[in-house]
Nucleic acid binder design. Sequence first.
DNA 1: TTTTGTGCAAACAATTTGCATGAGA
DNA 2: TCTCATGCAAATTGTTTGCACAAAA
Lengths: 154, 154
Amino acid sequence: MADPDVRERFRAFLREQNLPVTSQRLVIGDLLLNAPGHLSAEDVSSQLSEKGQVVGLATIYRTLDLLVNSGLVVERDFGEGFKRFEPARNLPHHYHLTCTVCGSVTEFLDERIEQMIRTAAAARGFVPSRHRLLVHGTCRDCRGAAPVPKRRTL
Amino acid sequence: MADPDVRERFRAFLREQNLPVTSQRLVIGDLLLNAPGHLSAEDVSSQLSEKGQVVGLATIYRTLDLLVNSGLVVERDFGEGFKRFEPARNLPHHYHLTCTVCGSVTEFLDERIEQMIRTAAAARGFVPSRHRLLVHGTCRDCRGAAPVPKRRTL
DNA sequence: TTTTGTGCAAACAATTTGCATGAGA
DNA sequence: TCTCATGCAAATTGTTTGCACAAAA
């Protein structure tokens, strides 16, 4: 059920840092590192509960910090008022298409956009380290049905 | 001290909506619509206080909502844990360069990036409505001095 | 056995809301 | 006047922290 590779990398990280490898850390790591989507702390909590693996929210937040520090997970802020977390794949930079109707998030990659951003930043005397691109709109599935997408900020 | 044009547009919006034109609404609107930067609700509050125009925080938040709904102001989330607001200039889409050392925010425009984003989204069956691009890095002024920028998330 | 983690509850920060009072139309 | 806004304080939400107890090394 869990990719043994990432699981092992998280254990290795904990050992390197002389941090105890606890069952809750593994359980949270397994869930998040193999999650297809972008989970919030709440999502992690409820998905674990559903599986009968109840872990306190505080522990979840603390473990999310560890995962982010390990580099295995990245933190995302979609402007929803809370953070989401996703496994750090090897994708150098992937962008997000968010559907304003169904809320689905699609990822995509574009070398040329990436290159242009780098160039545009440099032209302004700026040395870029990382960047984020967030596109809002309507996905294929939601087009046609929805009359007026519910008014949401951002 | 305030651009009479945007000020008048806010009044017009209020009148259209049959909403009272109160002194606090005007004062908040004047401040924000003529602000050079990106202000948080706290910023608005403290800047008004400095001018001796004390307005309750609740009213500030309520008025920010109005300004956003009027289309005269846009809301920004830089992942700081709170929102910032800036006047909606006529710039169709401007992007942000954030310096991770001094925190300064520079805006820029790039037609070609914009076009590529549109194309990339369309190629994935997505009709884009708006998008955001956020670039982190080091600005010209901060390069050379800072050894290791303080570790911050996002 | 010593260190570090865990869960709970309290603490926090940004933002929202209920309600009595006060100002615009 | 009648409606809607304001200010205050209490409520809410996402997240963090202190502390007593429990589990890893």
